[in-house]
Each structure stands twice: as structure tokens, then as C-alpha cells.
């Protein structure tokens, strides 16, 4: 058993959310006794709002040999913290055919989102999981942009301090329902164990229950 999780997000405004997803999965996996790695701050440390960023985690029941590779070469779990990324980039590069689990934070109909994937990418899709993380998260602020942070917190990130310090507990805001949906849809990690490392446990459990799945390929 070997899983590679790549979380795609937007620079600065949703960067912490992506980091939280990879960190929580890696932490939970390690607590469960798996070999796990979390690359939550590598390469994409942009000081640019909106630009694409990636966070990686992987875990396996055998030692992870890709020691000096930080970017997942064969991601089979992909989380899109912001829905528009579905049409922005080839997030299934290196994924094996019929094995990709794609979790999208969106309130839209899964069928609508699927339209944006080209054939080359749907070939790799195993299941599409759509969770309205914005709707399920603890509501703070009025804008999906600054959804979990107020201006001062955002300004803190703007000083390129990302990753150097964390101002919030890990697994808050829209990260929590995303983790819930991912764990529930993949079924590889027990939900309760993962929930124990997520700060906003309730929102994580809401995400685990309320998401839509399209089983695309029988893996």
C-alpha cells in the first residue's frame, strides 16, 4: 500500500489550507504506524496571490524510497482546494490509469466539473469527490477568499512567513471538510484516527458525511 497525496491550492489566500490537508494526512498516517512523509513547504512558496501552489504527503506500509524527490511522481490522491484549478493544470501527471481520486472543494454539480477534464485526465480518474467545504466549514468572514482568516492574519502570510510559523491550529476552516471527504472517500485511513489530529473535528466529520462521489473507473 502506497499513496501519494498532492494538494493544489492558491498562493497566499488558500495556502495554509493546502498545508493543513497534507500535514493532517501525514500525521495521522504516522500515528497509525505507516511510513509517512509530509512536504508542506517546498518550491511553491510564492509571495503571489492566487498563483498555483502544491503541497505533498505520502504514506506507505513499506519504507518510502523516493527520499530525495519532494514532488510526488505518481499522485493517486489529488485535492483541489479551489475549484477552478480543475481547468488550470494537469494535476494527474504521473498518475496511473484509473487510480486517481480527485477531491474538489466546490458547491457545483460533479457532472459540471467533470466536463472540464480532457480525456487524457479522465482516463486516470478513479473517483471524483465533490465537497462544499466552504459551506461546511466554520463560517468566518464573508468572502471565500479570506474565508478562514481575517486581514491581519492574511497580512502575516503576506510577509512570506508561510510555514515559518503557524498562527492557527492545524486543520481549521475549509481544510477540515476537505480532509473529511478525502478520508471517507478513499477509506484507507480510519476517520476517527484522522479526526483526532484535525483541529476542527466537527467540520471534518461534516465533510466526511456530506460529499458527492462519482465512481468513474472500477479500480
Amino acid at each position: 500500500m502506497h499513496h501519494e497525496l498532492t494538494v493544489w491550492s492558491r498562493g497566499i489566500i488558500m495556502d495554509k489550507e493546502a498545508r493543513d490537508v497534507s500535514t493532517c494526512i501525514a500525521t495521522a498516517a504516522r500515528k497509525l504506524g505507516y511510513h509517512a512523509e509530509n512536504v508542506s513547504d517546498y518550491v511553491d512558496d510564492p509571495d503571489r496571490t492566487n498563483c498555483l501552489v502544491r503541497r505533498y504527503a505520502r504514506f506507505a506500509d513499506t519504507p518510502i524510497l523516493d527520499r530525495f524527490v519532494y514532488e510526488n511522481p505518481h499522485p493517486d490522491w489529488v485535492v483541489l482546494v479551489e475549484e477552478t484549478i480543475i481547468k488550470a493544470v494537469n494535476f494527474f501527471r504521473g498518475t496511473e490509469d484509473g487510480s486517481g481520486v480527485l477531491v474538489v472543494n466546490s458547491a457545483r454539480d460533479p457532472g459540471y466539473l467533470l466536463k472540464f477534464l480532457p480525456d487524457a485526465m479522465t482516463k486516470k480518474l478513479n473517483k471524483l469527490v465533490v465537497v462544499d467545504a466552504v459551506g461546511l466549514a466554520e463560517q468566518r468572514g464573508g468572502s471565500p477568499w479570506m474565508f478562514v482568516r481575517d486581514l491581519s492574519e492574511l497580512a502575516f502570510d503576506r510577509m512570506s512567513t508561510e510555514g515559518a510559523v503557524e498562527r492557527l491550529a492545524i486543520g481549521m476552516g475549509i481544510a477540515a471538510p476537505l480532509i473529511g471527504a478525502l478520508v471517507a472517500a478513499t477509506g484507507e485511513l480510519p476517520i476517527d484516527e484522522v479526526a483526532s489530529v484535525v483541529a476542527d473535528r466537527d467540520a471534518m466529520l461534516r465533510g466526511a458525511e456530506q460529499h458527492k462521489v462519482i465512481q468513474y473507473a472500477s479500480a
Partner: peptide, 13 residues
Amino acid sequence: DEPDAVVRMETAF
């Protein structure tokens, strides 16, 4: 709703 008009990058950068 214009999937054909999408310019998709191969990776982020």
C-alpha cells in the same frame, strides 16, 4: 462553461 477554451498547464510552473 467553455471546456474547449481551457489552456491547461502541464504543471504549475
